[in-house]
Amino acid sequence: MTTVIMRTTARAVVPIILVVAISLFFEGHNLPGGGFIGGVLTVTAFAIIYMAFGLDFLERGVLGRDVDPGKEHSRDRVVVAYRRLFAYGFAIAVASGLGPLLFGEPFLAQSFVMLEGVPIYDHLEVASALAFDFGVYCVVVGGLLTILSVVGAE
């Protein structure tokens, strides 16, 4: 798979996918999109990197770490990081649900603030649902990347 065409395409496509994923994530609370879809799309970007450059590329090429070739891939530090992302994302989602209880509102209740006169955007909506969505995003990215990298190595 690692032809020149594949690698060149990956370089062009991956940034576009990531930008679309992030925009989907940000508009999820009142338009089609959200943490789940944004997360899945982000994972496809990682999948393309894995396919084009190999499983060790993130560890060696991006993060500049040495990879012990004899070691099981599921013990890699990047995979440990994926798992941690999963756990933290889950914690953020639960915490965002518990937050409203502090204000005497029911579990998972949401609110939003409209900011007017913001530069470039003019008016910007800040929604508390974004915190929950962010948690979901982390769970999806962490969980799917763990599966992808562990199963991909076997």
């Binding site: 999963f86 756990a87 914690a91 639960v94 029911p106 579990f107």
Partner: peptide
């Protein structure tokens, strides 16, 4: 919202407790 009384809060308590325990043991 309807007045959120003690009984009402209790309904969700077991679920929240389990959720928090799951997050805690995961972290």
């Amino acid at each position: 919202a309807p007045p959120v009384g003690t009984e009402s809060q209790l309904v969700i308590a077991p679920m929240l407790v389990v959720l928090i325990a799951a997050v805690g043991s995961l972290l």
